[in-house]
Amino acid sequence: METDGFVLVKPSRKRRIKSKKCPVLPVNNVDDEWDHPLDLTRVIKQVFTEDSVFCDKISEVISSQDIEQIVCYGIGRLSTCKLAQFQFAVLVNVLQKSPQIQKCLVFDPVLSQSERTFIAQYMEVLPENDMCGRRVMCNTLFYMIHSSKRMYDNVLKSNWDQLKYCTLIGNSFQSYLLHSTTSSLIKQVPHIYTCTEHTKEDELPKFVSHHNVFNNTVIMEFLSSVDTDSVFVNTLPADISEDGLEIQ
């Protein structure tokens, strides 16, 4: 079992949640060495040229919501995953377009030291895994593309009494209502289920560079009518490592 990831998989559980598929890029040594940082630099330039409208939309939200920091969870392997490269490239371009952002924090347990070093040129890499339980005290954009439901739920749980500070870019919560049973959502991700009717979802423009990078991705704002007096307010963030889930 992995011990340094967002989650662990229980040996007793037979069913595994599938991880998101990602085009694999050739590298010589993905664990210790990354020989292709120039590839990602080119991707960043490509996004700047071809997807300025996409990045501008996110920058407009940052401006309108007076967002001061970005927290990025689950960015993926930049050395081996093309989708992760595009998602990171968008984040870099958004930061360049949003000078009001004071801090951008990134964490993914799968990142190698070479990838962390590259990312550190643009933003701060968190040293420890907080299980998506970071509590924020200023207007914050959580950038979590294709994360698992439990990762989103932990973000909500950690900030349940102050969702006014939170904006989230990730999988549509409305799609969970359409494709999951009510009982399973209440049991597994009660915060998502409870706040969905108080969540405003806004579609993103078409991402030109690659059609699979931001599919089912929306910008979510949490309205003031969220029931912050619910039974979830005083609970601690769930320890995802005990839930037998994987990043997907």
Rank of each mutant, 00 (worst) to 15 (best):
D153M: 09
S59P: 00
I17V: 08
L204V: 02
Q113P: 12
C195E: 11
K57C: 05
V47E: 06
M220I: 09
M137V: 10
K57N: 04
S175N: 11
R42F: 10
L8V: 08
E115M: 14
S147N: 11
T140I: 08
K97T: 02
E68A: 15
S114T: 01
T181M: 03
V43I: 14
D130C: 14
Q87E: 11
V9I: 12
P237C: 03
F232E: 07
T80V: 06
V61G: 03
C195K: 03
M151T: 13
F86W: 01
T196R: 04
Q248F: 05
V9K: 01
G5F: 10
Q248M: 06
H179L: 02
Q188A: 12
M151N: 09
E124H: 11
M151K: 06
D66A: 12
T182Y: 07
E124N: 11
V226K: 07
P109N: 14
K14V: 00
I169M: 08
Y122S: 03
S12E: 15
N212W: 04
T167S: 13
I192M: 07
F173M: 14
N29V: 04
E60T: 15
V92R: 03
N129T: 08
T3Y: 11
G170V: 01
M144C: 15
V155A: 05
L78W: 08
V231N: 05
D161A: 13
E246K: 00
Y73N: 12
L163G: 05
V30N: 05
D66H: 09
M1Q: 05
P109F: 10
G74M: 01
D4K: 00
I145M: 02
R13P: 03
E221K: 07
L126K: 15
S209P: 03
D239Y: 01
Q46V: 09
V110S: 12
S64T: 11
T167E: 04
D153N: 15
V106T: 07
S230Y: 09
Y73I: 02
K10W: 06
S180I: 00
A89K: 06
V71Q: 08
D56Y: 02
P190F: 03
Y165W: 15
S183T: 12
H211N: 04
S230D: 10
E124K: 10
Y193M: 08
F118C: 12
L245A: 01
D66E: 12
V47N: 05
M144F: 13
L223R: 04
P23Y: 04
V30E: 07
F6W: 12
N129S: 08
V71D: 07
V218N: 05
D66M: 09
R13H: 13
P109G: 15
H179M: 02
G170H: 02
D32N: 15
V231A: 13
S19K: 15
M137T: 14
C104N: 12
E203C: 02
L38P: 01
F214G: 01
P109Y: 10
R135I: 05
G5C: 07
Q65D: 09
F107S: 12
K97F: 13
Q69G: 06
I192P: 00
F6N: 09
E60F: 09
D229A: 11
L78F: 09
Q96Y: 13
N215L: 09
V24C: 08
Q87G: 14
K103D: 11
F54R: 07
D130G: 10
C55H: 11
Q96D: 15
F142C: 13
L95Q: 11
T181R: 05
C166M: 13
I101A: 03
D130M: 14
K206V: 11
Q188M: 13
E201M: 05
R77L: 10
Q121H: 08
V189Y: 05
